[in-house]
Design a binder for these strands. Structure first.
Lengths: 210, 210, 210, 210
DNA sequence: GATGAATGAGAGTTCATTCAT
DNA sequence: GATGAATGAACTCTCATTCAT
């Protein structure tokens, strides 16, 4: 059996195990058994548990980024539609590969070697979002009055909201909302606010959206 | 030294260790040393690693809930101001007790005994938010056309956005935004959208906020 | 509360615990709690676990020896009647104080400090039996042709049989035989053989008891 | 080195350690060292201390039963000769494998998982003896007037006497009696009594064997 | 006389990892 | 290319034992 195939089997098994039990609790024994190979072979191909986990994370990062990039390929449509497309791609992906997403989620709390990898991915996603927001601002005829820091904050808020929604929607065993519905919920939640901001309207403590 | 004091020392040390290394990677030896006591004493007072972690989680859950409840004590002001107050309280808390919040964050990925505890807390926070949204709808003269599921989704989105922003803002070592600023960012991000929804306006794929 | 009383309480609790769980598995915590005192007090009175166990063993050894001596007080009756009396006393004692006897039983497998104590007791019991056998031989008009080693062997066989019967009879929860019945069983089992031996009759491989 | 060999080495080492120190006091470290392997290997092959002990007990139970069965293979000879053969086999075994027998002895006081195993063995041995007694009764032309309970008691007495004699004879470092001698002692001790019982003669408190 | 507070030492168990074949 | 055999290191947890009060 060719090496690549074996290697993918191992990664599949590892992703499953890591998703179910976490990095520490998943044992190399279990993974090797689940992959249908002997433990030394796992070490031969993937060096160590740390590298194995890293490989899993990288693969899932790549898959998620690819899905989102694929969803936002069209560039000459309004920014909100682009965001809408990206969100649908994101939620479709999280629904299709729950184990992979769980691994990423867990990797964020596993300290340096791994968290960085996921953080880098987030940066990439955030940059995609940031571009969209920039374009949206231009569409809205606004002159870029938004501080970079504020944009960064907004992007993180959006990503956090998306992650939370993905988890919530995948947790429902019955009657789970479709990717489309979830994306719509999030668009409804955020777009009006973002649009206002582009136009320079702000919510203020002595309140009035205006 | 009286038992209560020692016990708090241990919890403090444990929260620190769990926040830094995670549940599995933090060793009881380390925790005992950090608390300045011997390991058997930790076991005498807190029974097991699992119960120790549970105690940490419970304490931090209680502290966070208390902070948010305290922030939203005023009830006869507009819903958006109440939300604003709650968010400031939340961000102030996450800034003041980063380790405690990290423990809660990590507990979410640690399986049944712990995740449930945090999930219960989230439910409580979500219910607070839900009440606010309900009041906001009434304030807006809307006739409650929002499906329960949609409200739940919105609340989860809001909470996720808040968590993500808290993490992002605490991660900045220099020039970290204040709780007030972060809360403002989030209000700007979401309030206009929520307000529109209360009025029955929706974002639609062939787009126009209207 | 006077020291002696406290001390007896502790010994009672210890005997119970050691009987139930064995020397190693019974913990000083349990014993102190069962005795209704604090652990340091146990150490104050009885020095260490080893000395505590030793004290238990000694007390129970003394009680058993006393019971058997009491049963065989009458000296000017036929040897078989004396043995009969001793056995009844023995079985009555094992039935009345099962925990104490169990402790002795367990002490035999606990290595040097303890096993010696019980061995000494066995020697004493054996010597009582040996005296009886000697008298029986004289009664039978035999001229003491029995080698000392053989007598010792017989005595150990008798004691072993008695112990085994005691255990068997105490194990029956319903319909347990009385001390008298058990003693009768043993007398029936052994006396004819002993009597024959006294007279110089032996069982022989090309067999005939004669 | 093949697994079976290693496994036997471990069992040998474990039997030695358990015999010398008892179940609780023998440590897995010691056993592993005595077996010339590392501790994890012991766990890999034998799962846990409990299972290791169980395996020892089972092996020794099997060996002892096999020895006795082998000794009593001949069935068409008088019952006393059969008993004589069985006893010689028993004493030869206890002399040849003192550690194994000690383990069985200790297992009797180690509570449920283990005691049952040994109890089952005793039942088997007792049943062998019981059959012999039954045949002896027939040989003696007796009409089976012995109550089942009494036979059971006699069998336990015989087994206890044998155990006690085995211990006593093995304890002698110099000049230990041979299996033959010990068996002869026991036959002399018991056979006349048993024979009398078969014929309906009993020892009576106002005494006379008749 | 009696105890709440505390610990050193060591138990069983598991895991990531590596050879020799 | 693939594996059965083997281990060093570390972990959770318990216990007999002792102070300071």
């Amino acid at each position: 059996m060719p090496r690549e195939v074996r290697e993918r089997q191992m990664l599949d098994a590892a992703v499953g195990a890591f998703a179910r039990h976490g990095y520490q609790a998943a044992s190399m024994d279990d993974i090797a058994e689940a992959a249908g190979v002997s433990k030394p072979l796992v070490y031969l191909y993937l060096k160590s548990k740390e590298e194995l986990f890293t490989a899993c994370v990288r693969r899932e990062v790549g898959a998620l980024i690819a899905a989102v990039r694929e969803g936002t390929r069209e560039r000459d449509i309004p920014a909100d539609e682009q965001l809408w497309n990206g969100l649908r791609a994101f939620f479709a992906h999280t629904a299709a590969r729950p184990d992979g997403v769980t691994v990423l989620y867990r990797a964020r709390t596993q300290g340096e070697p791994f968290a960085r990898e996921v953080a880098a991915m987030r940066v990439e996603v955030v940059s995609i979002v940031t571009l969209l927001l920039g374009q949206a601002a231009k569409d809205a005829g606004c002159d870029g009055e938004l501080a970079e820091r504020e944009v960064s904050g907004l992007a993180h808020a959006l990503v956090g909201a998306a992650e939370s929604l993905a988890e919530w929607s995948n947790a429902r065993t019955d009657d789970a909302p479709s990717a489309k519905e979830t994306a719509a919920t999030l668009m409804n939640f955020c777009w009006a606010g973002l649009e206002n901001l582009m136009k320079g309207h702000r919510w203020m403590p002595a309140p009035r959206v205006h």
